[in-house]
Design a protein around this nucleic acid. Structure first.
Length: 359
DNA sequence: AATCCGGGGGC
DNA sequence: GCCCCAGGATT
């Protein structure tokens, strides 16, 4: 074993957190944890992991769930394609792999939602395969310790880190090595103001020697923000004691695919209600039915990584049954059963705030 | 190679 | 405000 691996695994044995997916050798549990933790902190993902293993203890039970159920349990975690791919892969394992995760890097890579990182993580941790993981932690630790100054969001920098990671990997115990490196990045070699004085690598860390810790890892790309205005219509119709709400499933090529929101008109700036009601898209689906504007919400700001959303909710109380056109994804749902539907955080938060929709 | 996809937390 | 997080799919 090389000195780097020796030091970092020794550090890991002393300092690692006790986490449920570390108490098992079950590939299903390890895969599930890795998918949940993609672009997600342990603190945020832990409760989701526990709910998922509790609801679906094995890959067979998960494979029999509906997409709506999986998205509902995933609600609030973001990057919802992970949840849809999770279900796809569970079905692949049951149907194409005889119910067992393959102990092979390339076959793991063929699974939906499993890229190089997750294939290496599941392979090394569950099966002892000799593939080095490269995630945000590994990028940060290796770029600092070995002084990699190439941009880690461009191909040459990434390739350099990948080569370094595979050279350093302890092939006798790759799962331990990989987890140690990531845990060290998560707990000690943190993004902002790490404690380099007490670091096990401070004598050999090139970034520390050159005073570059604050500048590594280097990224060259800037994120560009898009601003969108979402004018939502919460359309209700009261029938007897029941309040029905028109929900709309989100479909193609945009945020929140598979989740539900309301009929909306999107604009590039803030607009008046008169503009919205005279809009063709609005007239189309209300089909000239009679309604009362019963409430207008404040403007709600919701920040995504690449988008700033401003949403306003217009409550429309209809006096005759709402036309349900399943072609455009609108369904009339009893308010009592809204808990079964997965909503984006923006929608869920608003619904929590207003408590009940006043029909 | 570039772009898109969420939400929460640290500073 | 800006950056980051146990990244992956699509084009």
């Amino acid at each position: 074993m090389n000195e780097f691996s020796h030091k970092i695994t020794a550090w890991y044995k002393q300092n690692h957190r006790s986490l449920p997916w570390r108490e098992t050798a079950d590939p299903y549990a390890i895969w599930l944890s890795e998918v949940i933790l993609q672009q997600t902190r342990v603190d945020q993902g832990l409760a989701y992991y526990q709910r998922f293993v509790s609801q679906w203890p094995d890959v067979l039970s998960l494979s029999q769930a509906s997409e709506q159920e999986v998205l509902k349990l995933w609600q609030g975690l973001g990057y919802y394609s992970r949840a849809r791919n999770l279900l796809t892969t569970a079905k692949m394992i049951v149907n194409n792999f005889d119910g067992a995760f393959p102990a092979d890097y390339k076959q793991l890579l063929s699974l939906k939602g499993v890229g190089k990182y997750t294939a290496a993580a599941v392979g090394s941790i569950a099966f002892g395969l000799p593939n080095a993981v490269v995630d945000g932690n590994v990028m940060r630790v290796l770029s600092r310790v070995f002084g990699v100054q190439e941009a880690i969001d461009a191909s040459d920098g990434i390739k350099k880190i990948e080569t370094l990671a595979n050279t350093l990997l302890d092939k006798e115990n790759p799962g331990l090595h990989n987890q140690a490196l990531m845990e060290f990045g998560a707990l000690h070699c943190v993004p902002a103001s790490p404690d380099c004085m007490s670091c096990i690598f401070n004598h050999m860390c090139i970034a520390n020697q050159k005073g570059l810790v604050g500048q590594l890892p280097f990224k060259q790309k800037k994120i560009t923000l898009r601003v969108r205005y979402l004018n939502y219509f919460i359309c209700t119709y009261k029938q007897g004691e029941d309040c029905f709400v028109a929900l709309k499933i989100r479909t193609s090529g945009d945020i929140w695919k598979g989740l539900y929101d309301f009929p909306l008109i999107e604009t590039s700036e803030e607009v008046e209600i008169e503009f919205l009601i005279n809009n063709n898209a609005f007239l189309d689906w209300t089909n000239n039915r009679n309604f009362t504007l019963s409430k207008v919400s404040d403007l709600q700001k919701h920040q995504l990584t690449h988008q700033t959303l401003f949403a306003r909710f217009f409550h429309l109380r209809f006096h005759e049954p709402i036309a349900v056109d399943t072609k455009n994804g609108i369904s009339l749902v009893c308010e009592n059963s809204m808990n079964d539907y997965p909503f984006p955080r923006l929608i869920d938060r608003y619904l929590q705030n207003i408590d009940l929709i006043n029909c």
